[in-house]
Amino acid sequence: MCYLFPMKIAVAQIAPKLGDVEANVGLHLDILEKARKQRAGLVVFPELSLTGYTLKDLAEEVALDPAADPRFRRLVARTKGLSAVVGFVEESPSDPGLLYNAAAFIADGRIVHIHRKVFLPTAGIFEEAKFFAQGRDFRAFDAPCGRTGLLVCRDFLQFGSSYVHYAAGAGVIICVSAAPGRGVGDGDTFETARMWELMGEAVSFFATAYVVYANRAGSEDGVTFAGGSFVYAPGGRLVARAAAVDPDLLCCALDPAAVARARKAWLFKRDEKPEAVWRSLERIVRASED
């Protein structure tokens, strides 16, 4: 029996204003209202949606404590009757001086979960580990859309991250992203867009889970974000895909019962042996420490 109801979700492929939290809160509130009018039950914003991505030393100026910051609290208060995922720079009183690239799952006026990005890309055009502290945990949580796992951008490309959420029973894996477009060939979008969809398709198939990928639009310092947000249903079925590069509001249905159906049709979850994976990983980690 599945006790969760189908809902409409909205992926907000926005172009936040770099370094301007106040303006971005306004943008979020506008989109929440728009999504509410379309009867969306979940609105997913991209990575660092409240701040913009290419922050560098601005990170410390835009960092906030989600429990206390009045702008964040205003946003949380406006989620009555729906859920939202927002990206921000977190600096909590429990961890003073440490800045995290974080995403919060907010539901019905309450912060349900905060995920701190674990894999901080730092090579080539990426320099996150220069400015952010590393998250250390993947923890699935219960949400109105069912058991959910949250990932931030590069987390999703390290495929162990999705596995942990899957092992914890997540039927919805949400990845918020600020993925720059790289590589132009003869296609209609950047070549790197394929990489995200490939992972989305594979994870949704083998984890028999929804994959919601919210990327951003716009450009910063000459880098154009590729857009192309998407939703895959369990079993690798593409439900919807947003425009490349341009801002978009992608609305589609999410039916938690589809997870149960897929897990009856494909028995990967039933036959999964996390204890075998755990024992093997433990041995590998121990060996690498010797």
Binding site: V184, D186, D188, G218, S219, G222, T224, A244, V245, D246
Partner: peptide, 21 residues
């Protein structure tokens, strides 16, 4: 260098110019 889809490149560059201005 790879053959480009000039319509897509135009779209990206026009957006870049607009954003910066």
């Amino acid at each position: 260098p790879p053959k480009i889809n000039p319509a897509f490149v135009e779209k990206v560059l026009v957006r870049f110019i607009r954003d910066e201005f």
